[in-house]
């Protein structure tokens, strides 16, 4: 799996879990489906951007920082529409970006199939 696909899938999976944790907040539990869908889309977009960055820049520190920044940025956009839950939105969103940024740099894509000389 290439870095872009890997980061996108990982971002999506973490996005799903990120959304599911809203179930533990009783006042938004009835909106959980919308939250999971939105969170998944956010995770996928975060993964795409981080994957594209990881294809071009090969640095664990820069990749992780970029992931954190992208995760925090998208979380902030969500926060603008839902004021009052700053930590609940910013912290998990940033954590997803941080993890995907780190994993995308560490991931080694499968080598191309060998051919006869």
């Amino acid at each position: 799996m290439k870095k872009l696909a890997f980061a996108t899938v990982l971002g999506g999976i973490l996005g799903i879990f990120d959304g599911l944790t809203a179930w533990f907040t009783p006042e938004v539990r009835d909106q959980i489906i919308g939250i999971v869908i939105g969170s998944t889309i956010k995770g996928v977009v975060t993964g795409v951007l981080i994957g594209l960055f990881a294809q071009r820049v090969h640095s664990l520190a820069l990749g992780t920082l970029f992931g954190l920044a992208v995760g925090a940025f998208f979380a902030y956009l969500i926060l603008l529409g839902n004021p009052g839950h700053a930590l609940n939105i910013m912290l998990p969103g940033s954590l997803v970006g941080l993890i995907v940024g780190y994993a995308a740099q560490k991931h080694r894509p499968v080598a191309a199939e060998r051919r006869a000389p």
Binding site: F6, L10, I13, L14, F17, D18, T21, F24, L91, P92, L95, V96, I99, Y102, A103, K106, H107
Partner: peptide, 18 residues
């Protein structure tokens, strides 16, 4: 294994925060 370990780590941190 790295990705799986990171997802598990995320879930543990998230549960801790909650």
């Amino acid at each position: 294994r790295l990705a799986i370990a990171l997802v598990v780590t995320y879930l543990l941190v998230r549960l801790l925060l909650l």
